[in-house]
Design a protein around this nucleic acid. Structure first.
Lengths: 209, 209
DNA sequence: CTATATACGGAACGCTGTTCCGTTTAGCAA
DNA sequence: TTGCTAAACGGAACAGCGTTCCGTATATAG
């Protein structure tokens, strides 16, 4: 144990901060791990063993643990990434479809995200510190995305105005959260459809004055 | 592996059914296990290791597993027992206190049961077959108990009538379910108090005609 | 091309739930 | 009281988990 550090020169590339450039294979492995983990979680649930993920990603467990300090962090990273992907899907949809259709398609997309996350609710309530950042992150990314779609559709007169994005997001999420069996999923699907139809009730039918 | 059974005489004590009398030590160990498990679950959560329970109960793990085929069955058995204890607490309370006070004390008792069950919600959503019988059992035992207290208090004019026992039970349960930190518990406590006060609003103030 | 910080792989550890089987014992009959 | 036996016990052993550790391999700067 040396008492002094070997003069780390305290800066790097463009002379500002502290981080080195990441090695190319490391970045590639990180991407592969995130993608593989997402697939495994979707098919086997978030309780899938880390060894299975490492194996399917074609890396050793040591590699997995260098990128994520523990399995909870890996799960959280996957969720964050999927939240981002879902949020980012709003803009292209808005550009390619009429307002209500874009809104409808995005909610479908969001349902697709929530429904495949078996064990998400349990994970959130587990008290693990790694999951604490997820609800804020969800709110920060998803609510503005949904609000934009709602506003656009309302301005076009295709849905009523005054619907709160946070409420709608939570409602749809709750309907699908902790759905385990097929009849439950069918019931949830019907309820979400009802919710969306409800948005159209009381719409003006024409662009706002 | 013998092909024929050794003539089990097909009946027992009072000549009716099929079960033998259980050995005394077996019964004693079963009781000890249930009680110890309840204490351990209350202090460490339902994820406590089975070895810890067996050790604190002063038995081997083999003994634990003879009485319960797996840990989920043990957890379910503890919950069933506590549900029964909670239901059975209603009658003595009704006999020893005025109607509204009895109702209030029982709800406090119920809260004490729900609040200490960290991980119960997650367990119920886990999809394990051992837990499937718990919600029906809760409904069958707790709803009549609460309904009796509500009816008595309503008849005495101490609370309004027409409050559904199932609704109230679920409301109180939801408020405390998945409460992990102290501020959450305080908030839940206040909300339950509000609920109980709400029962008194619109009461006649005198026994029904 | 060489040197080295960086990243990799997987054996190994400690902790789970669960199984298995040799040993002990409660309860009955003589 | 003393055997006898089915019933119950105890805990070593196994498989699978998350996580740690460290010798080995390699991407990349100079």
């Amino acid at each position: 144990m040396s008492t002094d550090v070997p003069a780390p020169l305290e800066n790097d590339e463009h002379g500002s901060a502290k981080a080195r450039a990441p090695r190319a294979d490391a970045q590639r492995n990180l991407d592969t791990l995130l993608q593989t983990a997402a697939e495994v979680f979707a098919s086997s649930g978030v309780d899938a063993p880390v060894r299975e993920i490492a194996e399917k990603a074609g890396v050793g467990i040591g590699t997995l643990y260098r990128h994520f300090p523990n399995r909870a962090e890996l799960v959280a990273a996957v969720f964050r990434r999927e939240i981002d992907a879902c949020a980012n899907a709003a803009e292209p949809l808005a550009a390619a479809h009429p307002p209500f259709e874009a809104l409808s398609l995005w909610i479908e997309r969001y349902v697709g995200f929530v429904a495949t996350k078996k064990g998400l609710a349990a994970a959130l309530h587990s008290g693990d510190a790694a999951y604490e950042s997820l609800p804020p992150h969800r709110n920060q990314r998803l609510i503005p995305a949904l609000r934009g779609l709602l506003d656009t559709a309302a301005s076009a007169g295709e849905i009523r105005s005054g619907v709160d994005a946070y409420d709608l997001l939570n409602a749809v999420g709750s309907l699908y959260m902790s759905v385990r069996d097929e009849p439950g999923a069918e019931s949830a699907r019907r309820m979400v459809a009802l919710l969306i139809d409800g948005l159209r009730y009381g719409a003006t039918g024409r662009p706002e004055a």
